[in-house]
Design a protein around this nucleic acid. Structure first.
Lengths: 179, 179
DNA sequence: AATCTAGGTTGCAAATCAGTACTTAGATTA
DNA sequence: TAATCTAAGTACTGATTTGCAACCTAGATT
């Protein structure tokens, strides 16, 4: 498993976090467990019946995800037989990835939006398509992208220059939170 | 494998595309192959040396990805021994998912931005963090989300009402392409 | 004609998965 | 308080999948 990491980080000029991410949550069932957890599932037997995974595999995955800091494991106070699994911030931060994957499936596989629909609780409207954006919020397609070496980055990319652009953009769209 | 799909689509009120997506590109190595393809790799032997996968597994994955419509397979004209694998639109559309996963790894695992850096070719600045947004472009965090049943959607969600809001937002941020 | 190359296929051992039975600590019930 | 039940695992089994190396075949090169 660790061979993936070795292999790729040893390639010159190609130090990518993708293989590392995959090592942690790329295993079978991890995303399904994540989805269940996001839907409020927190107990072993509930994961079991919700996603139809084998007991031993579920135990293994939960252990690994706790070790990876994606979930916490805490025995319940009122019933000490029970254990509560809960997503950490790190785990919650996988939500965009999960939604993106789900939206891809909606678009290219099932063809229909999943029900129930994920909405913005502020206005109760469906959330938008997840996509790549420039620093200033423009949506980017694949052909708009290029790979630039760290050392050759446009100076505007760091320091006050960029901050200004971001701040200006946030004002334009009335944004409050910065990711 | 198809059991995942059966299992979940049979759960009442829970028809989600995630398991379907995972069936297609959830297998080990698929994302790594995707990444290589995005970096311009197109030949069997190149995938092999780039990602350190076994021959038979690579052959299997490429076949499956072609069947799934993620890649095309075309013998080269000038050298008929060679085959060119190329991402379809469907395959390219997995890019946001992949970037999101990579960014997650940068944030929570490696701690450093991958090099070279993925940039907007227009201004050569690094692309922004991939995140969830409301229909009008506001960035949404997990606690801003809720699940709403299809039948209970706010009427503004479809028809002219929503279109207007989207168009207005696009004008605000000077956006040209709609995903 | 002999060799080399790209893109596979085949066979085999090791690892992982899936399914079921068993275990153990703690709650509930008779 | 003993018998039962429940939640969360562990252990054992066979089936799949993986990784590795050897082999194969059509087409290019020498």
């Amino acid at each position: 498993m660790d061979k993936i990491r070795e292999n790729l980080s040893s390639l010159p000029g190609d130090e990518c976090s993708l293989p590392v991410s995959l090592e942690v949550i790329g295993e079978r069932w991890c995303f399904m467990i994540l989805r269940a957890a996001l839907n409020g599932v927190g107990h072993f037997e509930d994961f079991l019946s919700e996603i139809g995974i084998a007991r031993n595999i579920l135990a293994n995955r939960l252990t690994r995800m706790v070790e990876a800091g994606i979930m916490t494991r805490r025995p319940c106070d009122h019933d000490k037989r029970k254990v509560e699994y809960r997503l950490t911030d790190k785990g919650q931060d996988l939500l965009p990835t999960m939604i993106a994957l789900r939206q891809w499936g909606e678009k290219w596989e099932t063809g229909v939006p999943s029900n129930p629909i994920l909405c913005d609780s502020r206005d109760r409207l469906p959330i938008g398509q997840i996509n790549m954006r420039a620093h200033d919020g423009r949506v980017l397609e694949m052909e708009d992208l290029c790979w630039i070496d760290e050392s050759e980055l446009n100076p505007k990319a760091d320091g006050a220059g960029r901050e200004d652009m971001v701040v200006r953009h946030l004002k334009e769209i009335g944004e409050s939170s910065v990711a």
